[in-house]
Design a protein around this nucleic acid. Sequence first.
DNA 1: GCACAAAGTTAGACATGGCTAACAATCTGC
DNA 2: GCAGATTGTTAGCCATGTCTAACTTTGTGC
Lengths: 170, 170
Amino acid sequence: MANNLPYAFTCQSIPCDTDAMTEFDPAPHATSDDRPADLRAGAFQGVREARRNELAEDYVELIAELIHDQGEARPVDIAARLGVKVPTVSKTLDRLAREGLITRAKYRSVFLTDDGRSLAKECRRRHEIVLRFLISLGLDPVTAERDAEGIEHHVSERTLALFSAFASRS
Amino acid sequence: MANNLPYAFTCQSIPCDTDAMTEFDPAPHATSDDRPADLRAGAFQGVREARRNELAEDYVELIAELIHDQGEARPVDIAARLGVKVPTVSKTLDRLAREGLITRAKYRSVFLTDDGRSLAKECRRRHEIVLRFLISLGLDPVTAERDAEGIEHHVSERTLALFSAFASRS
DNA sequence: GCACAAAGTTAGACATGGCTAACAATCTGC
DNA sequence: GCAGATTGTTAGCCATGTCTAACTTTGTGC
């Protein structure tokens, strides 16, 4: 699923990377805390990694949505949906093109590459699972949507599976 | 500063501005507009806001931890825990000092201000709740720690309450 | 088919967050 | 109390993400 993507979307996209950085132990001595420091240390690595990709994921997911709903993805619409200005979008789209997630021609709307499309699909899947999970927990849809938007980039495959199972059996 | 927290944690407090796009239906299930676009549009605002504060939150939380565990928070330890280089920490600490979350003197270790302390406490609380929730869902502790680190900055108070309740009754 | 509006781009400013290299201060072990 | 190791700071580089201002292109209406 994720192996044709140009990035290491390590935090979420690769289900079996859970051994990657947990063995690193910078703290000279973890005192009698019941919550070992090394766990947290390792966690930061993954989070920083994930943060680097959040924006790209938001973009491709949104672009896919716009194409689906309106037939095309125009910078002006992307900007409106994200709540940023058009030049910001333009610059970011350049980056995404450079990274092979989209293609674009000057003054024309944006298209996803195969990589972009599969990233979008993956993102959408995560989004849906998180959203359904939150709603099945009893959260109102507005808050659920907002929280899902933030959370979706930070859930591991393992957690996603639990969320999914929980939502199904509710 | 309104309350004793230096930032607006607007991730949860942004009112839903339902003005933008019309309906569309990306989800296969919904008949017409079960999940209106405006929900997602609004969500991005909050997420971007939250992202701006994540790093500061990570820092103060970690600083509080270091002070608790080792008596002091030194840049070298912060750097090791976060997995970044010391100059990066130094620069970020300058910013946090500028923002009134910490105090520091040259070549000495770092202290939290009252604002910093209450932010740290708040973050720790969120972290604990998310972590306990994930574990009570059945997630292994290592993954739970990693996911909690990413998720904690993006859960609304409402979601947190649900998480907390769920973890308690398990 | 022209003029104007809307959309897109480019340039440039600014803050952040990461890095390395070079230097300064502090701490430690004789 | 001094030398060397460790720690911390400063300077400077780069990429990103945001903005505004100015310009260009596209598209529309008449």
